[in-house]
């Protein structure tokens, strides 16, 4: 317990130093300086183990759910992730919503976001009329150095949002020091330039010790399907409302290779998803 406390304190101090550095860096831009604080740790050993230097904040990430109704779980995970990455960072978050998502996914509820530690006042909601302008808006937002993050919510796998578009977002995220994320609702696994891709699924929560049929800590199943800098994996995590962070829920009964988990039918496929020319 003492150890974690010291570590948190050290991290806070390091971040403070990094912030000072960043201010100086604005006079003469050194991308290298900012990279120091461009990584966060989840505080979950199993998860941190797959990221050697820590989770890269300044990159393009993808959070997806296979079914439309899991968008709540995916949004919740992204909100928690954003809150964790933005803890020591000022700046606004631009949330761009493809019009197709609005039809059945509902809209973000600020009171719910606040519970994940994400201040709704930091969000700038952008609702373009079509996918083309949504892509343009995400490109423009990723150019802005004063932002903290950009979220691009998209439904399914639109053809327009291809390798080139994601690569452009990835480059801008790295150059401008932004957390850029794709939130894909009900989409298939698709090869793109994202540094990590998470597939989120809701899990039955733990029993609440205070209530008979109460809902305990909410649990999510995370499948890290792609990790540019390390291994992939599968974990179940719970959201701890007290500490505003995820904690690991060890699951002893699941002992399968991670890659096959989201493909319940058939043998696990060999190899990796590669970027070919699109069929659609």
């Amino acid at each position: 317990m003492q150890g974690t406390h010291v570590r948190h304190r050290m991290e806070a101090l390091q971040d403070a130093v990094a912030r000072v550095d960043r201010r100086h860096a604005s006079f003469a831009r050194h991308a290298r300086l900012r990279e120091k604080d461009g990584f966060v740790r989840f505080g979950i050993d199993a998860l941190d183990a797959v990221f050697k230097d820590g989770f890269p904040v300044f990159a393009l990430h993808e959070v997806r759910c296979t079914l439309s109704r899991d968008i709540g779980a995916a949004s919740g995970f992204l909100a928690g992730l954003l809150a964790g990455c933005m803890k020591n960072r000022a700046g606004r978050i631009v949330w761009i919503c493809d019009p197709a998502c609005r039809l059945d996914g509902g809209q973000l509820f600020p009171a719910g976001l606040a519970m994940f530690g994400l201040d709704p006042a930091r969000l700038l909601m952008v609702r373009p009329a079509d996918l083309k302008s949504a892509l343009w808006a995400s490109d423009e937002a990723a150019k802005c150095t004063e932002l903290a993050g950009v979220v691009f919510q998209v439904k399914g796998n639109p053809a327009r949002f291809d390798m080139t578009a994601t690569r452009r977002l990835m480059l801008k995220a790295q150059q401008n020091g932004l957390f850029v994320s794709i939130l894909r609702q009900g989409g298939e696994e698709e090869a793109n330039a994202a540094a990590t891709r998470w597939c989120v699924d809701a899990r039955a929560s733990a029993a609440d010790p205070h209530l008979e049929k109460g809902i305990g800590l909410l649990r999510l199943s995370l499948v890290l399907e792609r990790n540019r800098n390390g291994q992939t994996g599968q974990w179940t995590v719970a959201w701890n409302q007290h500490e505003h962070g995820f904690e690991h829920v060890p699951e002893d009964h699941v002992d399968r290779p991670a890659a096959a988990l989201h493909r319940p039918d058939g043998a696990p496929q060999m190899g990796q998803v590669m970027a070919f020319e699109r069929a659609s």
Binding site: I71, G72, S75, G76, A79, G105, G106, Q107, L108, F109, A111, G112, L113, A114, M115, F116, D208, H210, L211, G214, I215, G216, L217, L218, W239, N240, Q241, H242
Partner: peptide, 12 residues
């Protein structure tokens, strides 16, 4: 039980 999320993330 403030440890529980009482409001949803998405609202219709």
């Amino acid at each position: 039980s403030a440890a529980v999320l009482t409001r949803p993330v998405l609202l219709f």
